[in-house]
Nucleic acid binder design. Structure first.
Lengths: 254, 254
DNA sequence: GTGAACCCTGACGTCACGTCGGGGTCAAAT
DNA sequence: ATTTGACCCCGACGTGACGTCAGGGTTCAC
């Protein structure tokens, strides 16, 4: 309980260098609970627990500043959060693995992918960085459910998911190109397809929830595709269509 | 075929910044195939392929210097290698996930782990960094087999594996503490246990192969435990015992 | 009481870029 | 024909997360 560890002992226990501990002390990320009368750093068990968390989050590529924020959150379930991050990371890498396997298959069949196709299939925007997504989505029920569901997806699932989404997005881009207004029945139907896609693949998504999410499309964040890259004004268009669709549904219910 | 991409086009295609491309050009990691007469960088499809590989390896945390070396290797199957790296990384994270789940279970049972136990179970030395392991082991048959086998291990497998190894190592530490010579029959028997463990969990390992691996123990590298941390002189002792054991076996066969 | 092994605090080096600043280039619109 | 805005160049300084000395104090076992 009351045993304190010297720098080198602490460093070895968590697998970092002494210099790293000095650094963390300097920037205030992990401060030793007390010092010997000669000024030696003495780390308590509590310090070590904190340090261990820092190391864990760092392993997953978070910056020290972010880590400090996360750790500042009193009342956050670190184990649960770490688990989520890991699961997200694993599914990210599994998605990459899928791509590799597909390329290997393509190569075996004598086909080479163009850079553009590779980007398509790679979908690196798609598998967004977990912590950033967290900042956008907060601790919402939807986020958690999304994490849980996607964690179990196979390579084929991801493939199907992406294809379905691409189909809907294509039709949306076409609609905005045609000059179809976002309140047109066709646009609303596409918004409905989008909602069902989300509901099917990510998390429960009724019309009200979908309206709540619409703002994310308008702000054209990283979490999905960059809609405006597909067609100018598309991100706003999608937002408006979703809102119109949600409105339509409400009026048929009330 | 002959289409060239400008910096920004190339950058967006692979998902990096323009500055990054400037940097890679400067250090010679990815040089654009040619330049416009105004001095604009023009990336060919081949350049993009190279760039894509760089980005991939970087995503997995390799340093640019390492990446340069890997790419310098003419005649290396990048897709295969990338696959291996990914698989290794995934199994690494899955091992971490196991630990988290075990801690969650422990917490549910009202038990808290001490830092030392956490380190034990975390085994971060154990799940070594893949590229470093690769440098130690080269492209040997053993390495590849190890990758393939361990990729399919469940959390329980890893747990069992670690426990078995810990048991053998414990007995070895005891033996060196007793002053038992490495050529003693007891030491040789322990070396044999080590060999069977490797053969069972990692890759085919006959006595000759094992003798070949012995040097890794002596050099006390990261790939396994730091043997000398368990007992002074243990790394050399294990090496000697393995060699003696291999010798013994040969004489009974010849 | 004297090494060897640890500890301290600067302070400078490094890697992989981010971020200006000043200035040329190019295609389209005026 | 020029202007506008988006794009390009290079040089240089800034930054995050440490690595790596240099110079000097501390602890502990022999």
């Amino acid at each position: 309980m009351a045993d304190d560890y010297t720098v080198s002992a602490a460093a070895e226990l968590v697998g970092v260098s002494v210099r790293t501990l000095h650094h963390y002390d300097q920037i205030g990320l992990v401060r030793p609970g007390n010092r010997s009368n000669a000024g030696y750093r003495l780390y308590s068990d509590a310090d070590l627990r904190r340090l261990h968390r820092v190391v864990f989050y760092r392993e997953l590529g978070l910056e020290l500043g972010e880590i400090a924020e996360i750790l500042a959150d009193r009342d956050v379930d670190h184990l649960g959060r770490q688990r989520e991050l890991l699961v997200a990371r694993i599914s990210h890498y599994e998605a990459m693995l899928t791509v590799i396997d597909r390329e290997l298959a393509a190569r075996a069949a004598g086909i080479a992918l163009t850079p553009r196709e590779r980007r398509e299939v790679f979908g690196q925007d798609f598998v967004a960085h977990a912590e950033q997504a967290r900042r956008e989505w907060g601790d919402s029920k939807e986020f958690v459910q999304r994490q849980q569901r996607t964690a179990t997806y196979t390579q084929d699932d991801w493939q199907r998911l992406r294809e379905e989404l691409a189909a809907i997005n294509g039709k949306l881009a076409e609609a905005v190109g045609d000059g179809t207004p976002a309140t047109d029945i066709k646009a609303m139907d596409l918004a409905e397809e989008l909602r069902l896609h989300t509901d099917r693949w990510f998390h429960d998504c009724d019309h009200d929830t979908h309206r709540g999410l619409a703002v994310h499309y308008k702000e054209n964040r990283r979490s999905g595709r960059n809609y405006d890259d597909m067609a100018p004004g598309l991100s706003r268009y999608v937002h408006d269509a979703i809102v119109a669709n949600a409105e339509r549904h409400r009026s048929t219910v009330d």
